Amino acid sequence: MLKGFFKKTKYVTTSLPAYEKPPTPNIPNGMWIKCNTCDQIVYKKDLEENKKVCPHCGHHFRMTARERIDLIIDENTFEEFNQDLSTLNPLNYPDYEAKILQQQEKAELKEAVITGTGKICGEETVIAVMDSHFLMGSMGSVVGEKITRAVEEATKRRLPIIIFSTSGGARMQEGIFSLMQMAKTSAAIAKHDDEGLLYISVLTDPTTGGVTASFAMLGDIILAEPGALIGFAGPRVIEQTIKQKLPEGFQKSEFLLEHGLIDEIIPRNHLKETLHKLLHLHKEVE
């Protein structure tokens, strides 16, 4: 009897349901954006409603030209001109035409600047807005021509002109033709100034190279957005050239304001109001 009590029983095999992984959340791509300044994750819709300014640290994300026009110009008052100017390949640079077509489809622009007339709180002005989403806003023949024509139109109509700059510099695929745009745009602005007319330059991130060395720094009033990179050559190139460590924040708009190279830094949510005041004051003086 005791022998049966200690007898080993057979194990019973049972089938358990296989372990199922929890379903992966179905989150569409592009709904969240990481801020490169504070590393916070921002809901894209909230960012757009906040004029593409990080709600956590105030970092100003880059805008397209059309987004900026919608932000600054009164609704239904913008009239674009010279929108059909096309880029050529004067140096027969390999694959340049294909790259331009690719950029036009990607950025939904003909070139890296939009020009036209519009009203800011009722004050009429000519405006040129560069777009870094098109070949990093590089200045080729068409960009220079459109900006020059915009300045000449402002002079002809005796209107102020506002230029929003953002650029990586001259467009290398066009060589000397690109560099000539520096002189051409500067000459048009000089004639505009001779007529006693107002030119407001607004520097956004980034404004570098030949654009900085020409029309971007020729404004009667030079404004900038917070934290914008502004300069001719990049910080790394300068350090390699002069063999010195650059100061903290060198080439940022705050550094330039402190050293007297720009007139004021204006946060994006105050920019339209500020431009309206400047246009109104200049109109009163005239």
Rank of each mutant, 00 (worst) to 15 (best):
L85N: 05
E264P: 02
H259S: 06
D84F: 03
P267D: 10
S167G: 06
L198F: 06
N36G: 15
R158I: 10
V285I: 15
L16A: 15
H56K: 14
R149I: 00
D70W: 04
E80S: 10
H59V: 00
S253R: 05
A216N: 00
F164R: 02
G227Q: 03
K110R: 13
V129I: 07
L2D: 11
G234Y: 09
G140Y: 01
E264Y: 11
P247M: 08
K3H: 06
E123P: 03
I222Y: 06
S132E: 10
R66C: 03
F78N: 02
E49Q: 15
S138R: 01
K34P: 04
L135F: 10
F164E: 01
G209Q: 02
L91A: 03
K110E: 01
A128E: 07
A98M: 11
G144D: 05
L281V: 12
S86D: 14
G144C: 04
G219W: 05
K146V: 04
M130I: 00
G227E: 04
L278F: 14
A170S: 08
L71N: 07
R149G: 08
Y19R: 15
Y19N: 14
V129R: 00
K45V: 10
D131F: 01
A150C: 14
C35A: 01
K277R: 15
H192N: 12
H280A: 14
I41Q: 13
G219K: 06
A216M: 02
I73T: 10
F61G: 07
P247G: 04
H133N: 14
L261E: 13
D220L: 11
T155D: 00
I127R: 05
G140Q: 03
K8H: 01
E152C: 07
T37V: 14
N82K: 06
T13N: 15
D46F: 09
G137S: 11
L71R: 03
D70K: 07
V237P: 00
P94R: 10
F232R: 04
T212V: 09
D95W: 15
P28K: 07
V126K: 00
N269R: 11
G144Y: 04
P267T: 03
G122S: 11
A154E: 05
L91H: 08
L109A: 08
I114H: 03
T274R: 15
D46E: 09
L85V: 09
